Simulated scan of single mutants.
Amino acid sequence: MTVYSLAPGWPRLLSALGLDPQAVLRQAGLPADLLRSPGARIGAEDFFALWEAAETLYPGPDLAVALASAVSADHFDAAVFAGLASRDLAQAAERIAVYKRLIYPVTLDVRTDAGLRIALRPRTPFTPPTVLERFELLFWVAFARLATGARIRPVRITVPDPPDDQTAVADFLDGGVLTHGPPAVVFSPSDMRQPFDTAVHSDMWAHLEIDLRRRLRTLEQSATWTDRTHAALLTCLPAGRRTLADVAHHLATTPRTLQRRLEAENTSFQKVLAETRERLARAYLRRTPLSNTEIAFLIGYGELTSFHRALRQWTGQTPRGLRPA
């Protein structure tokens, strides 16, 4: 899906880290009441912008380390708490990977053939902010320590862009540092199988599993055809597929049926296409160094002038005006 729930503890966590939640929202260009809205849901682009804003305003040396250091059972979403009901870290990673999409626009690829390797893979056309990647990987170290009661240290953590100053990271990892590579954390076979001190009775897991599966079904069933069309376009547009027929095929329906379902939701394929292109254009301009020509191609425009004209119609600005200063 393309929208994600914000945990209700965000304001409290931001404040505990010395951040003003309202200032973070302003920096991210998000509504001032977003964090006060029960069950608030935002798209992946806005979710990433929230993390980037928090990092920009954070007064300390490393927000990812600060967040990982603050990990406790009190702050967990049910999907993560389910991990504490596991036998060991390997089982916890496999369980959490199934339900991760309830709370994050990131997929976990879990392998247990030679120790435990947890890799991050985005579910949108955009790479997560580096601070989010670092936290996601450091989180697993904090989680393993919390669950086992042992000072577990990973075999290695790789990220595409390691920070220059890793003093805070080294303190957290007991001398370890982040090295260059695809975003992933690796634990030894012995740490992977170390029993959890916090493992709970199987009845508790059964209860959690029922609730989490219900939430997944609700998420899937509540998706409108507008949401599904937008999600399909995120995949189709970069591949050069932008027609009603292309998207209908991707959604395993017919063009006529898709158009009828969109009309029932008071919209149209062309309107969803334009909205998706605008969202992609804003995100590419704000979050990537891609050239205007490359962005035009990725959102389905064969000519740069057509992209410029559409962008001015959507935003009243040129590409230069939407790029960060």
Rank of each mutant, 00 (worst) to 15 (best):
A248Y: 04
A248Q: 00
H249E: 13
H249A: 15
H250N: 08
H250S: 11
H250G: 05
H250V: 04
A252L: 15
T253P: 05
T253V: 05
T254G: 10
P255D: 03
L258H: 02
L258W: 02
L258T: 04
Q259D: 13
R260N: 09
R260Q: 10
R261G: 06
R261S: 08
L262M: 06
L262H: 04
E263D: 08
A264E: 13
A264K: 12
E265C: 08
N266Q: 13
T267M: 04
S268E: 01
S268M: 02
Q270D: 15
Q270M: 10
Q270R: 13
K271S: 13
L273G: 06
L273H: 08
A274C: 10
E275V: 11
E275S: 13
T276N: 11
T276L: 10
R277K: 14
R277I: 10
R277N: 11
R277C: 10
R279S: 14
L280G: 06
L280V: 03
A281W: 03
A281C: 00
A281F: 01
R282I: 15
A283L: 02
A283Y: 07
L285P: 05
L290Q: 07
S291Q: 00
N292M: 06
N292R: 10
E294P: 00
E294Q: 11
E294N: 03
I295G: 03
I295S: 03
A296R: 01
F297K: 01
L298W: 01
L298V: 05
I299W: 02
G300N: 01
Y301A: 03
Y301S: 03
Y301N: 06
G302W: 02
E303S: 08
L304I: 13
L304K: 11
L304G: 01
L304E: 10
S306M: 05
S306D: 11
F307D: 06
R309F: 09
R309E: 12
A310K: 11
L311P: 11
R312G: 14
Q313G: 11
W314T: 13
W314S: 12
